[in-house]
Nucleic acid binder design. Structure first.
Length: 269
DNA sequence: CACCAGGCTCCGA
DNA sequence: TCGGAGCATGGT
């Protein structure tokens, strides 16, 4: 267990934080990030530590045992949920990609979100970046990397029509323009006060409290962000009656992810 | 054919 | 501040 960093691929990829990883049907996953594609099985997890990009992406250097203890100490009722999802990691995704992804996720369902993201990369992604260094990992240059903010900022709503993302198209374009112009500096939000970071993101048309905190948690790895969606809204009173997310401090995002995974499992049977 | 999907904007109290 | 309709689209 030690050499795998406790990472569980299924828990990590199916907890709703990302939309570009797909199960291969045999316990492994194939996906894309940072201009690369990767196919990986649980047995190949130890290989990740030798690759600087994937080591960071899978957050192998964060002490999740300590964070999990912090969460459980703040809310003992979460102990069962946290144990069940202890192999889940908060991926260090690209900030722009995460923001864009969760703008597209609003009032939408996961299969359709996945389709929109796929078409977004297929239609507007690229060009591919240099191939990753050779090694034992089954990785390659992504032929359709997630489109940059600059690329999308130059697009019109008609250009996004093939995505079939509906009213979200103008939200994505507004976000792209604000990021590409520098009006919003995503990296600067990584260490800004939480309320300031939220307020900055919510100046984007189509970005409210939920999407803003998703962008902060998944895109900037801000574990103090707490994206309250319909699941959490329903699960909080049921599993954590009277608990204020503030008690989790800088592990609030991880706490909500444990709760989300747990609530979904229960709701789906 | 209704209803819903990891919300948000806009509008009227 | 708060509640509710409207939003585009595809799946069930």
């Amino acid at each position: 267990m030690q050499e795998t960093y406790g990472l569980d691929l299924a828990q990590t990829f199916t907890c709703g934080q990302c939309f570009r990883w797909h199960p291969d049907g045999r316990g492994g996953f194939t996906g894309a990030a940072g201009g690369r594609t990767l196919s990986i099985t649980p047995a190949e997890i130890p290989l990740l530590e030798k690759d600087p990009f994937w080591r960071t992406y899978f957050d192998l250097d964060t002490d999740y045992d300590a964070l999990r203890e912090q969460v459980c100490a703040a809310a003992p009722a979460l102990r069962e949920a946290a144990r069940a999802a202890q192999g889940m990691r908060i991926l260090r995704q690209d900030p722009w990609e995460a923001l864009c992804t969760f703008i597209l996720s609003q009032n939408n369902n996961i299969p359709r979100i996945t389709g929109i993201i796929t078409r977004l990369c297929a239609c507007l992604g690229g060009p591919s970046e240099p191939a990753p260094p050779p090694g034992p990992l089954r990785q390659a240059a992504d032929p359709h990397p997630f489109p940059t903010a600059g690329r999308l900022a130059a697009c019109s709503p008609e250009d996004l029509a093939p995505l079939r993302c509906g009213f979200r198209a103008r939200y994505v374009l507004d976000a792209a323009q604000k990021v590409a112009s520098g009006q919003i500096n995503l990296q600067a939000l990584r260490h800004a006060p939480l309320d300031e970071a939220r307020a900055a993101l919510q100046t984007i048309c189509g970005v409210g409290p939920k999407v803003a905190d998703c962008a902060l948690l998944y895109g900037l790895h801000r574990m103090d962000a707490f994206p309250v969606d319909v699941w959490i809204r329903r699960a909080m009173p049921m599993y954590l009656p009277g608990v204020d997310p503030l008690v989790f401090g800088d592990a609030a995002g991880l706490a909500q992810q444990y709760l989300f995974a747990y609530a979904r499992t229960r709701a789906c049977g």
